[in-house]
């Protein structure tokens, strides 16, 4: 009998993003893609774009909303006043949204590092993204507790 290690859906999504970026040429192509993701990200419901959902970075602001789907999965929506931050938030959503709460809470995010954009997650950037990731994982824990 073989024991298979099943990569979580979150890890699979990260690897997929990594493959996408590996095909890109220079930094411009990467940023153009991130910018397009930012532009395409569904607008946050105005009712959710409130101070309670605001993560205030020094450089840019991020709004993050979370709710639970019918099967218990966590659904994230987000917005930012800066388009690159918003594009990176879109990537975070692609990785973490629509996943089981426990997977979100224990997720290890490696894709930004591997696609060479980890500096955006550094606290010195102060763009709200690092706090956004913390907040997403916290939501994972909260929804886990709720069951």
């Amino acid at each position: 009998m073989y024991l298979y290690f099943m990569a979580s859906v979150i890890d699979q999504r990260q690897e997929h993003i990594e493959d996408e970026f590996a095909k890109m040429g220079d930094w411009m192509e990467k940023y153009e893609y991130i910018i397009s993701l930012g532009k395409e990200l569904d607008a946050l419901d105005p009712a959710d774009k409130v101070d309670d959902n605001l993560i205030k970075g020094c450089q840019s602001r991020v709004w993050l909303n979370a709710k639970q789907g019918i099967n218990g999965e966590v659904i994230f929506t987000a917005d930012s006043d800066a388009i690159i931050t918003k594009g990176l938030a879109a990537l975070m959503i692609r990785v973490l949204s629509n996943a089981p709460a426990s997977d979100i809470a224990s997720a290890k995010l490696f894709f930004l590092d591997r696609i060479g954009l980890n500096t955006h997650l550094s606290p010195t950037r102060s763009n709200g993204l690092q706090s956004m990731v913390k907040q997403m994982k916290l939501y994972g824990l909260v929804f886990m507790a709720k069951g």
Partner: peptide
């Protein structure tokens, strides 16, 4: 229509160091 953070980030890619923010 362009956020200073976005402009600063792309300028950094071009080797140009500016400061953005308040």
């Amino acid at each position: 229509g362009i956020h200073p953070y976005d402009l600063g980030t792309l300028l950094d890619q071009l080797g140009i160091a500016v400061r953005t923010g308040h």
